[in-house]
Design a protein around this nucleic acid. Structure first.
Lengths: 189, 189
DNA sequence: TCCTCATAGTCAACTTGTTGAGTAGATGCC
DNA sequence: GGCATCTACTCAACAAGTTGACTATGAGGA
């Protein structure tokens, strides 16, 4: 039920096609939820049949016809009700951490490479998130924005994403340093 | 395939029953992967039939018979190979963040409560992780441990979990402060 | 004595998420 | 001129994760 509500929350920003949702689920929404295009189309169809979203077919010149989805009153009510339900507890779920856990039983050079790759990805994401943050803030200072902006939800979730990626980068640096020191020690020993 | 390898990595610490694994997946392994008992039993059966783990039936007095699983050579090889494969990218997946994103369309008092609950959970987890950390370190200082300990994988993943929970707590504090300030402003305005 | 909790699981049904391929027109690039 | 890329989807099959109920035994407390 969380994917459904993540979609509804995204539609608060206005109507959107499945295709556009798929892209925004790789940009802003990716701070707190991910989904493949398949999941989105399936869920949108289901929600349309349940009256939570309304589809409007838009014929385009030079492009395939698309369907634009928007929140209905029932959809907004479902979303509001969702905010009152206890959220599931969460935890990191990361194959890279499984690999680091198994470090000594595996290939430490490959793991080192995977950690370095992850750090590069995190840096790219962080930059994207920070540009998004600038755009959200506009001219305002953070404190002013948080006190006066009509919608602070997206800013707060973005802040969580930024902190997560910063933490990722810091952790990757630590792991790389430890691996290098230990590899160096091996050569000496 | 990540659950499978998370189980194999856990069995590096020695043989374990499904029941014990279920408990450790709520303690230490929860830093980087979660699983329900159902998933574990299913996966253990599959892995046994594929020769990745070996089961040893232990009859107990005063307790139900249990099966203790241990790594086979094939299982260790599979785990080693897993560390060479590119890990999937990861992201936060958190219903609470979906709720915060939908803040202005939902019930802000309920969301506030959910954030406060999450903060309490994070604090409990953090304390547990820090006790675990002390136990892992033993008498050593961190730098010494990282340079000389035979296995640093579990320490490094635990460090990631600790940082994650600290970041959670900090973020929850921010969100609570913002919500309170805005609720206060409403009363004044 | 009954009730709850801990141990140690099994079974079935369901939802959610992933993978890969296919359709089809338009634009851009070399 | 041809080939890749972008838009905008659809279909099918599978893998992974969740939920709830059920079996059995023993220990500890009210």
């Amino acid at each position: 039920m969380a994917l459904r509500n993540a979609i509804l929350a995204t539609l608060l920003d206005g109507e959107s096609s499945g295709y556009d949702l798929a892209k925004s689920f790789n940009a802003s929404v990716a701070n707190f939820w991910t989904a493949t295009p398949q999941q989105l189309y399936r869920e949108l169809d289901k929600m349309e049949s349940q009256g939570l979203v309304a589809a409007r077919v838009v014929e385009q010149q030079r492009r395939p016809t698309k369907r634009l989805f928007s929140l209905t009153d029932a959809g907004a009510a479902e979303l509001a009700e969702f905010t009152t339900r206890a959220p599931k507890p969460t935890a990191i779920r990361d194959e890279l951490l499984v690999q680091v856990q198994a470090l000594e039983a595996g290939d430490d050079k490959e793991v080192r490479r995977a950690v370095a790759d992850r750090m590069a990805v995190a840096e790219t994401k962080l930059k994207r998130f920070e540009r998004l943050r600038e755009r959200l803030l506009g001219e305002s200072a953070e404190a002013e924005f948080l006190a006066t902006a009509p919608r602070v939800g997206p800013y707060l979730t973005l802040a969580r994403g930024i902190a997560f990626e910063q933490e990722n980068i810091r952790w990757c640096e630590t792991v790389l340093a430890v691996l290098d020191r230990r590899a160096g020690g091996d050569r000496l020993g």
